[in-house]
Design a protein around this nucleic acid. Sequence first.
DNA 1: ATGAACCTTACCCACATGGTAAGGTCAAGC
DNA 2: GCTTGACCTTACCATGTGGGTAAGGTTCAT
Lengths: 134, 134
Amino acid sequence: MNIGQAAAASGLSAKMIRHYEHNGLLQPTQRSEAGYRQYQPKDIEILQFIRRARVLGFSLADIAGLLALWQNPQRSNTVVKQVAQQHLAEVEQKLKELQAMKQTLQLMIAQCAADGGAHCAILQHLAKPAAEVK
Amino acid sequence: MNIGQAAAASGLSAKMIRHYEHNGLLQPTQRSEAGYRQYQPKDIEILQFIRRARVLGFSLADIAGLLALWQNPQRSNTVVKQVAQQHLAEVEQKLKELQAMKQTLQLMIAQCAADGGAHCAILQHLAKPAAEVK
DNA sequence: ATGAACCTTACCCACATGGTAAGGTCAAGC
DNA sequence: GCTTGACCTTACCATGTGGGTAAGGTTCAT
């Protein structure tokens, strides 16, 4: 199977598959005589694993670790859980930041007349907010 | 006022102030004979404006626009509001994505025994999720 | 044999920020 | 006057996850 078919089968782009190989996420595959990468069904499973982990926001470094654990029969699920919990904590941290942004943005937008005039609560807030944000 | 003092006064780093100037966010300042950038109190207000907008997640391109509007007495608050609403929509989109990640991560973590064994619901989910995520 | 569709590597770009290197400047203290 | 340390300058590299493009080789069907 060539890289284009592997990409279609896994939901990744051919570009990214090469990138993952370059980054050490994937073992270099066999090559055809012409140098084309050859993928086996087992490789497709690995690619799908990577795609699903990316959808969940895991970094490539995290995924490298998860892949190694996945392929290690001696693994401990405790380690896997730690990785996931650490990532969840980061996601929750970003959620907090975005929620704070959202709240302030909504407040500012609600206070903006949008009547075509020059007076603007949004610009006022950015110039001198009621409560300074550090 | 030198760049270090301007950085301290505005809450930005000297590095970023230079970067903003390089990007066209800031007008090049006066320079001392030795070539040091010189900042006036008015410049500090602009730097603080930028910092507050960054805290709210506005891109540098957005901030360039907001700064131009701020300094234009002929501005229309309608335009400002549009910029803010567009950014809010992006923030809300990211919030949705992160919330979906959070939910799935919590589910996977809850199902993981973490008893030191090799069986792991998290890896199972990544290998073959119950409901495929495209 | 030719053309389309695929593959290869190797670059540049985004985005905001940090780091580092190599060098110039200024002020304080001796 | 000289040293020292803190500051400033520019210029480059790195991050992380991709997208884009270029220049070229391969494969297959017509």
